[in-house]
């Protein structure tokens, strides 16, 4: 486990994410369309935090802002205390976006490659992760030969291995069937317990958010505002059995009520 932590060098006390008074709007036919309004939060190093909300609540915009792909109209966003965010967070979009000409292993090292990690070094680290992630034996497979669930795991490894202190996951399991989905949720939980990295997850699935997170933010409909902050008290390590626990069911119905109020 110590080796894994080493592989992700920047997992450290600096891996914090903050947003203070963030506003963002787009232009639609010349009319300003507010997407996010006065969004503020602080995420500590090593925390797993989710944002849930109906479509159009600006969840993906929020992640794009956190990743540094866009800048807020107003307010301030920092990663590890700095507003310079491009290249400092590992972003995982909904699509796996694996390059079809690269083997699974070479796809997983893409982020390291961009950051200039020497090739052999990068491959060595990726091989270790393939072992841990239950992908051993598939290093040389092309994406076309992998199942949807496995492609998503490779995409996740690419994210884990991308140098950066924070992982930003945009509905990473949204495109998968429900069986593969819950399998991967549990897998992600195991991986996170080993990696102890900071994760920001965006999802419309309340159950997924509760299962995985330390804290859940419920967003309002457009323009997105933080409506509710829910600290998840479930003990760790968790397993899928937690889904049946009383506390889980209670939290879930509270969150669902909050989200439904928005639909």
């Amino acid at each position: 486990m110590a080796r894994v932590a080493l592989a992700n060098q920047r997992v450290s006390a600096h891996a914090t994410v903050t947003a203070a008074g963030v506003y963002k709007s787009y232009r639609l036919d010349g009319e300003p369309l507010p997407v996010l309004e006065d969004v503020s939060f602080e995420i500590g190093s090593g925390e797993f935090v989710s944002f849930v909300g109906p479509s159009g609540s600006g969840k993906s915009t929020l992640l794009n802002l956190l990743a540094g792909l866009e800048e807020p109209d107003r307010g301030r966003i920092t990663i590890s205390g700095s507003t310079d965010r491009l290249g400092h967070a590992a972003y995982m979009p909904q699509k796996d976006l694996l390059l079809p000409w690269r083997s699974a292993l070479d796809n997983a090292v893409l982020g390291m490659e961009v950051h200039g990690v020497p090739r052999e070094d990068a491959r060595h680290r990726a091989r270790e992760m393939f072992e841990i992630a239950g992908l051993a034996g598939f290093e040389r497979s092309l994406p076309a030969a992998l199942s949807g669930g496995m492609r998503q795991r490779v995409a996740f490894l690419r994210t884990v291995l991308t140098p950066g202190s924070v992982m930003l996951l945009d509905e990473p399991f949204g495109a998968l069937d429900s069986l593969t989905r819950s399998e991967l949720q549990e897998w992600l939980m195991r991986m996170w317990e080993r990696l102890s990295t900071t994760v920001v997850l965006v999802t419309h699935d309340v159950e997924e958010a509760l299962l995985l997170s330390d804290r859940v933010y419920v967003m309002t409909r457009r323009p997105g505002r933080i409506k509710l902050v829910h600290e998840v008290g479930l003990p760790r390590p968790r397993s899928l059995e937690v889904l049946d626990s009383e506390e889980f069911v209670r939290s879930k119905s509270a969150l669902l009520r909050a989200v439904r109020g928005e639909v």
Binding site: L69, H88, G111, V114
Partner: peptide, 17 residues
């Protein structure tokens, strides 16, 4: 795919990369 380009940008990739 534009998403692919955004993914690379989020990694801090240059236009050249």
């Amino acid at each position: 795919e534009p998403e692919m380009i955004r993914l690379l940008q989020s990694m801090g990739a240059s236009r050249w990369q």
